[in-house]
């Protein structure tokens, strides 16, 4: 038995081999994020006549393991905007705290104006771009929704590389393949989106969430959904998918147990 204090509580060297302390080493090159670990899947959003609808499911996956099933990926900001996060959950938490401190600093001056979704998106995209330029990326793709300077609906995306774009409907991750075509059918351009009713937008987003649950293996039937208008944010974080129909499933051939 080794009585030296530095060995206390350690696995025995004679049984388990020398302790591998390589990950503790503080010298050598800086270690930066090379891959996401616990991840959230798609975020989808759609503009309508007086606001934006955004949704994301409540799952955080560890690879193929459905690790956390109660994860809120839509984060409110300053009572004016919502950010929907896809990608690494710890980076999401870091960004959430960063935005929180930004909001607190904004409140130091009592000028009364607060940051809108457009300001927030600009800020976030510069954080992402700075971090990718330092080769230390924040592994997310986010959708920022709210209102712009003219109080018009605002929806834009930013990702780990600092790439930004805006459109009447957006979807991250798997949603870019599955949900975006459905949403584009409802709102092919800004003109059409600006005439959509809240109900139409809500229905399209809920339908897309359902399709995503059918086909995305890293998804969940519990989700969060928010409607952002000039009146404020209506965020629901504990929704269940409704009216699922798996009738299509027995038509599927080609993998799993039904090879042909």
């Amino acid at each position: 038995m080794n009585h030296l204090p530095q060995a206390w509580g350690r696995p025995r060297d004679d049984v388990y081999g020398a302790y591998d302390s390589s990950y503790l080493q503080s010298h050598g090159p800086n270690q930066h994020t090379q891959q996401p670990i616990v991840t959230g899947t798609s975020v989808i959003a759609l503009k309508f006549q007086d606001g934006v609808v955004i949704a994301a499911d409540n799952l955080a996956s560890y690879g193929s393991l459905a690790r956390f099933t109660d994860v809120k990926r839509l984060r409110k900001f300053a009572g004016t905007s919502v950010v929907g996060f896809g990608g690494d959950v710890s980076d999401m938490q870091y960004l959430d705290r960063l935005l929180n401190s930004l909001d607190i600093e904004e409140a130091y001056s009592s000028s009364g104006h607060s940051l809108n979704a457009k300001n927030l998106h600009t800020y976030l995209s510069k954080v992402f771009y700075k971090r990718r330029s330092d080769f230390n990326p924040l592994w997310n793709q986010v959708l920022v929704v709210g209102l712009d300077d003219d109080k018009k609906p605002f929806l834009a995306s930013a990702d780990l590389l600092g790439t930004t774009f805006s459109a009447p409907s957006l979807a991250t991750g798997f949603g870019a393949h599955l949900a975006q075509p459905l949403l584009r059918k409802v709102a092919p351009d800004e003109e059409t989106a600006s005439k959509l009713s809240k109900e139409q937008a809500l229905a399209a987003v809920k339908e897309s969430m359902k399709v995503l649950f059918y086909r995305d293996a890293r998804s969940l039937d519990k989700y969060s959904i928010a409607i952002i208008t000039a009146d404020g944010i209506d965020l629901k974080e504990d929704e269940k998918l409704e009216n699922q129909s798996w009738a299509f499933a027995d038509q599927i051939r080609g993998y799993g147990t039904q090879v042909n």
Binding site: H32, T33, Q34, Q35, I37, Y62, G63, S64, L65, R132, S133, F135, P137, L161
Partner: peptide, 24 residues
């Protein structure tokens, strides 16, 4: 990284110096 249920063994031998995988 975390484990998948299906086989995805890397073709490079473990123990080799790993190139960083983030492409900016």
């Amino acid at each position: 990284g975390p484990n998948y249920s299906f086989n995805q063994t890397p073709t490079t031998a473990a123990g080799d110096n790993k190139e960083h995988s983030f492409y900016p």
